[in-house]
Nucleic acid binder design. Sequence first.
DNA 1: TGTGAAGGCA
Length: 579
Amino acid sequence: MKFKDYDYLLKECIKQRALREGQGVHAHMIRTCYNPPEYLRTRLIVLYVKCEVLGDAIRVFDEMSERNVVSWTAMISGYARSGRDSEALNLFVRMLRSGTDPNEFTFATVLTSCTGSFGFQNGRQIHSLLVKSPFESHIYVGSSLLDMYAKASRIHEARYIFEGLPERDVVSCTAIISGYAQLGLDEEALDVFRGLQREGMTSNYVTYASILTALSGLAAFEHGRQVHNHVLRSELPLYVVLQNSLIDMYAKCGNLIYARRIFEKMPERTVITWNAMIVGYSKHGMGKDAVDLYTMMREESNIRPNSTTLLAVLSGCGHGGMENTGLEIFSELATGKDGIDLGIEHYGCVVDLLGRAGQVRKAFQFIQRMPIKPNAAIWGSLLGACRVHQDVDIGKIAGDQLLEIEPENAGNYVVLSNLYGSAGRWDDLRRLRELMTEKSMMKEPGKSWIELGQTLHTFYASDRSHPMKEEVFAKLMELSNRIKEVGYAPDLSCVLYDVDEEQKEKILLSHSEKLALAFGMISFSEGKPIRVMKNLRVCVDCHNFVKYVSKVYGREVLLRDKSRFHHIVNGTCSCGDYW
DNA sequence: TGTGAAGGCA
């Protein structure tokens, strides 16, 4: 056989990812050629990298006396694909030292290994090399570069690179969409996606997976369903990643039936598939379904639960009032036979579990016995339990610990003041207020939104910018007056500002979730459930307000806040007033 | 050669 024949055969093997055949060609070549040329060795490296047998690639690479840019690049790509980022970077440095100039392929590849805060420093240095090279405006290099900045949370730099690209294609658009989505900048992600569609670009499965992440964040059910339709029409194969994002999207948009339907139809599932579905049930307080699915996963699939699965199922037990089952699952795992390391998050779930069940003292004792030092989340969880179950003594301990660890977190002050307020501890409450004023605390601004057709209507507290503000406020007054007749009383302890009562009631009434609810009451025909989303946890007064409205007006409300879904029907909420 | 899904508590 001639070199040309080997070259042809190896090319075919690479194309078809045919590892066995490629190894056969390799063996034959060793037997018959004394010193195969550089380009054949390079083909072998590419083959082994693509077939994910890194060891073989390294062996061929190490045996080469002279290396061209393609062999260096292929080897860097091998390390990068296996997540061995620092080795990829080291190899890049060796390449520069050897005097071989990187090309656009090398830059696009090596930048993928520059993620995380450590990698970002390297990425910036590589960027400065790029500026001196002719490849800065190459489209593949550009997408890699913007992705690197986005993953380091430098979204403005990422956007700047995106804007500066000489042309855009589906990958560079996807990279910026995914960058926004991962940082929770969901509306910006949606904006770019719409632009991509306007320009008639064809999305691929990664684009869909990325935009679905953003739509999950927005809980934009109509948008999500439309993207699903696009996916179906595009006749893409059933990529697991894409199916997983669809499950997650439907679950986070409050439609577990659709989510489960996709789950059932999947020919192949990963641990992420199971987790997404279990998390869906947990967020809706459907503990039994979460546990059933967890059991099914262990008994009927060959996929092993990981630490996320446990968080999801423990949280499901907590939100679903199944503390005993949760504790059993926890102690089963604490034996370590599943090979899952228990982190502080898991201990946090147990504290939450006990706290929700009203076992505040037991939760406190559990914290004292934990092998890990409790963090703010643990104390916060205990404090939340104390607020609901009116345990001021333990609540004070938890609150003091919390304010010591996180003195800048306004949310902590809110919960503690709720507790003092409802227990009539006015002295403690006043002291807390003074502390807050002293620190001039700012709460993260509350924001609620509601989807009407293809538009998202967003409301901020005391917002008067919405085009329908007059109607919204009028409706709000009507709702408020009507439910007051049947017993609703504004819970003024939800207002932390030191103002008079009338002012407090005004502030309460202009909370963003109430505005969104009023807008929904105007916009949706009777009998249609109203879905409201909020960026923070729903406040006690708003929760109560919605319950009254649901009863008096016979409206079903689905309220998704930062932590879970509240399904409110006829005056009762699926959270059992504990969230 | 570039873009990729899940996660407790607050």
